[in-house]
């Protein structure tokens, strides 16, 4: 089955090859196959699949990967705009609605 993709060319992910140590942690943590090994380092293979979860940035010891992490959740953003505190991934009982 074909993978689901959101918009093209919107994500904030950047990669600085000079800072990459080739440890491969980003390859292990990315849930979307955005990165792939390349000459002992990595490269961004599929940027549009990135969901900006921030796992690669958090686990990059060299600071080679940068992304503004966040959750792509319209109802949370609407709640925030309306000044309501309750948002997805915040309340206790409805957590299954944002995946496991």
């Amino acid at each position: 089955m074909r993978p689901l993709l959101y918009f093209s060319d919107v994500v904030t992910l950047t990669f600085d090859a000079d800072k990459c140590t080739g440890c491969g942690m980003c390859l292990a943590v990315c849930p979307r196959e955005v990165l792939r090994p390349s000459n002992g380092k990595v490269e961004v293979a599929w940027r549009d699949a990135c969901i900006e979860c921030g796992a690669c940035r958090r686990n990059c010891p060299g600071g080679a990967l940068k992304v503004k992490p966040g959750v792509g959740c319209a109802s949370a953003m609407i709640d925030k705009m309306l000044g309501r505190k309750k948002a997805c991934c915040v309340d206790d009982d409805s957590s299954p609605s944002c995946g496991q």
Binding site: I51, C98, G99
Partner: peptide
């Protein structure tokens, strides 16, 4: 979008 697994904040 929030329940899905392939959206980004920027998107």
């Amino acid at each position: 979008t929030g329940a899905s697994t392939f959206t980004s904040l920027s998107g």
